[in-house]
Design a protein around this nucleic acid. Structure first.
Lengths: 143, 143
DNA sequence: AGGCCTATATATAAGGT
DNA sequence: TACCTTATATATAGGCC
């Protein structure tokens, strides 16, 4: 099927799939922001969510404002965290993987990592696998 | 009838009992973080939550890291606190890969690849998985 | 596109162990 | 304290306009 109705049909499918994905993304983004809003209200706490879509668009909400929460985070994060409550720790950037892809040495990358970072890396691997799998089936669908 | 998710109706908005308030705070904080985690995974997006308890303790989670998301936010936002519009956009060649890695979006990376490159990537992922698995069992052996 | 509507799935407040 | 259970509240995926 080089051209004609078949190709057209596939393109429509892709577009609709993308639209569906976008709809879901929007709903969940709204849900996430609502949760944050309620959370901040209920406990009179400062809270903020920041999200970037795959396309790079920014969505954020903060109480009293994203700016203030971010600022406070930057002030606090360096000094030291919570006293009696445990804190979710920051995670390792996935750029490691990109760099490693170019170098070709996984061993060197994994060697220095701690438990949390390993966990993070595992998560990223699973994400990458899903994305690759999706891409593969997408290409197979074209044949 | 306004009832809470629990077994009984919530009589008062502000929870007076300190211990119970703390319990609820913890649960909701975990829920919020989980939501953010799932959101980031499901859509291969960058996302972060930051929260300060009334006592001033910091709780935060970010994918791939709070730092990276905050940094990107500061780079992107001109100062807004609200949400903006989302529009999925088809993008171009492979020079995009570098930028995509910085954005932390695997989707964007895989998007431009051909069959051979996908295959190579799959192989690399498998290798990485093995290396990570080895590292994990290595660490578990120490306990 | 932007709202409703409705099964299902999750989240979660109390209470129990 | 920390986990488990249970009853109810919310959130959400898809339909259907």
């Amino acid at each position: 099927m080089v051209a004609g109705p078949g190709k057209r049909r596939l393109e429509i499918e892709l577009i609709e799939d993308r639209a569906r994905r976008h709809t879901t993304f929007t709903k969940r983004r709204q849900g996430l922001i609502k949760k944050t809003k309620v959370f901040a209200n209920k406990f009179d706490a400062q809270a903020a969510v920041i999200a970037f879509s795959g396309a790079g668009n920014l969505f954020a909400f903060g109480s009293p404002s994203v700016e203030s929460v971010v600022r406070r985070y930057l002030d606090t994060a360096s000094g030291g965290g919570g006293a009696e409550e445990e804190e979710e720790r920051p995670q390792t950037p996935e750029e490691r993987i990109g760099a490693a892809l170019e170098k070709g040495s996984w061993d060197a990358v994994v060697e220095g990592l701690g438990p949390l970072e390993i966990d993070e890396l595992s998560t990223e691997i699973m994400k990458l696998r899903r994305v690759v799998a999706a891409r593969v089936s997408e290409m197979e669908a074209r044949d």
